[in-house]
Design a protein around this nucleic acid. Structure first.
Lengths: 136, 136
DNA sequence: GTGTTTGCAAAGTGTTTGCAATTTA
DNA sequence: TAAATTGCAAACACTTTGCAAACAC
């Protein structure tokens, strides 16, 4: 048995008040394998687990978690926001036919020549998306 | 003077019927420097040039042009679709504070270790977005 | 108690669609 | 004239917002 909650620690450390909703969502997100979610998918999962939470609260939580560095937002599709519980440096395979994402560990995908950022700018992040399709 | 229209050629070659609207949009897009646009920005530009075209038609044209390989869609922001008139292989700097994009020529940004795609899949494209912010 | 968070329903944004009218070949 | 394209307005999907009620500390 876990002596105390990993999810609770995460919220405490991040300075987010551990409300019933945030704690339940954090448990879904952080007490298992790393994963990719959307607001809709997390909300559905919460309901499946008898966690009463509104979609608006799910959106709030996802953004707050992202701001605190507990999640990382991934932009692969112009019509939907994806979030990743793996916040370490890595990239993604994106299956365009079904919208699924798979991590590519950073060691397996090297960007070796990153150009200098434009004058007065600094690089915040380099995102690589490898779009894959069913082989011909 | 240009003996015949570059834009018209592009449409002909692509097999798209050169309607007044498509031709006007193609002129805006292809008879100048390479550029990044959104449906909204292209529509505004058309109106500024006294080209009567509806936003729905702009969306249709952008998608048709993209399917024909005249444009390339760029995904950098989950809430808006960007298109690039430069369809050659290259990557982008994305200014998060103002939504502007700048091309990075392919030679200046090398992705040197691309992992094998998952079983049964083939790589359609590798997109690199370098997100920049105003330097601290 | 006091400030924060929630849920709802309404509003917002970018995009797509159905269909009659128009245009192109 | 037959088929493709357009424009409009309505519909859509996803996301955000305003605010009163509920909650955490």
């Amino acid at each position: 048995m876990r002596p105390y909650s990993h999810a609770l620690d995460k919220l405490r450390t991040a300075g987010l008040r551990p409300t019933r909703q945030r704690l339940a969502l954090a448990k879904l997100l952080f007490e298992g394998e790393d994963r990719h979610i959307t607001a809709e998918s997390l909300h559905g999962e919460a309901l499946d687990n008898n966690i009463r939470v509104s979609l608006a609260t799910v959106y709030n939580a996802l953004h707050q978690f992202t701001e605190c560095g507990l999640l990382r937002e991934i932009v692969v599709d112009a019509s939907r926001s994806y979030f990743d519980t793996n916040t370490t440096e890595h990239h993604h395979f994106f299956y365009e036919h079904n919208g699924k994402l798979i991590d590519i560990p950073s060691e397996r995908m090297l960007v070796c020549e990153v150009p200098d950022p434009p004058e007065g700018m600094s690089i915040r992040r380099v995102d690589v998306v490898v779009r894959v399709q069913e082989a011909a």
